[in-house]
């Protein structure tokens, strides 16, 4: 018996896992930040499904807005590519 919540959680957790792996393995750091933001968006949907609207309200601005902005400032001022 599959409820829609469980199916959606499965989808979003899978998206988060894939994009977390892509973010860690990506050599171009700006792309890594974007992948990390996608992973965070998937987690935001997961939090909504888990019955936590408070966490969604704090999580979306923090991890989709502020972290990428700060990291992009850092990357623009330092190095853009990670050497293997």
């Amino acid at each position: 018996m599959i409820t829609p919540e469980l199916a959606l959680m499965l989808i979003f957790v899978s998206i988060a896992f894939v994009f977390a792996y892509l973010a860690v393995e990506e050599r171009k750091l700006i792309r890594a930040v974007v992948y990390s933001a996608v992973q965070s968006a998937a987690f935001a949907f997961l939090f909504y499904l888990l019955g936590a609207p408070d966490i969604v309200l704090v999580y979306v601005p923090v991890t989709v807005g502020i972290y990428p902005a700060a990291l992009l400032f850092l990357i623009r001022k330092t190095e853009e590519v990670e050497n293997p």
Binding site: T63, L71, L74, E82
Partner: peptide
């Protein structure tokens, strides 16, 4: 395992988010 500090910070945010989840 990743040598670059920015990549370490990105990984750290991923780790923290997942523990919160």
């Amino acid at each position: 395992a990743k040598p670059h500090a920015t990549k370490k910070i990105i990984s750290l945010t991923i780790l923290g988010d997942t523990v919160n989840a």
